[in-house]
Simulated assay, not measured.
Amino acid sequence: MDFTNINPEQVLNTCGLSCPMPLLKTKKALKGMKSGQILEILGNDPGSKNDIPTWGNKGSNEFLGMTDIDDGVTRYFIKKG
């Protein structure tokens, strides 16, 4: 998937945080967003590669995908349901 055309309403940087903090911060950020808005999460915790996609598809939210970028950082995209 081409993520260059996604314009998230909010970007959450969880780099340097370890499990479970990236997921907890993601949940909190999504709570404050409106339905249809997109959250981009930046993170470098290896556990997040499983946690965020799995959780991102729960409820009415939609996990749009993830891509690795420089220095071990991964970008995740979730659309609030």
Rank of each mutant, 00 (worst) to 15 (best):
D45R: 04
N13V: 08
N57S: 01
A29N: 09
C15G: 08
K25L: 01
P20N: 02
K27L: 05
C19V: 01
S18G: 11
K27R: 08
G56Y: 11
L17M: 14
T26Q: 11
I38L: 12
I52N: 11
I6H: 04
Q37G: 09
K34E: 13
G47I: 00
L23Y: 01
T14G: 03
F63M: 10
E62N: 10
N44M: 05
P46C: 10
P46Q: 14
N50G: 13
C19M: 03
G32T: 06
N61H: 02
L24M: 10
L39S: 04
N50S: 13
P20E: 02
M66G: 09
G56N: 12
K25V: 00
L12A: 08
L42M: 11
N7G: 03
K34M: 14
M66V: 05
N61G: 00
C19E: 03
L17G: 06
D51H: 08
E40N: 07
S60C: 00
N44H: 02
I38M: 05
K49C: 09
N13F: 02
L39T: 08
F63Q: 06
C19W: 01
P20A: 01
N61W: 00
D51N: 12
L24A: 09
N57M: 00
E9F: 02
G32F: 03
V11F: 04
E9R: 03
Q37S: 15
G32S: 08
M21R: 14
P46V: 15
G56D: 14
K28Q: 10
M66D: 14
K58M: 14
N50H: 14
W55Q: 04
G36V: 06
L23M: 03
M21E: 15
I38G: 09
L30H: 08
C19P: 01
L64K: 13
A29H: 07
S48Q: 13
P53L: 09
L30D: 08
M21H: 10
N50F: 15
I41R: 06
E9P: 04
P53V: 12
W55F: 15
L42V: 10
C15H: 07
K34S: 15
S48I: 13
P8T: 00
E62Q: 15
T26G: 09
S35Q: 01
C19Q: 02
I41H: 12
L42W: 02
L42R: 07
I41P: 10
V11S: 06
M66K: 11
G43V: 06
T26A: 12
M66P: 05
G43C: 14
P8L: 05
T54M: 10
L12V: 07
E40L: 07
G36E: 03
K58R: 15
S18L: 14
S60Y: 01
N13L: 07
V11W: 04
P22T: 04
K58C: 09
N44V: 02
D68S: 02
G59C: 11
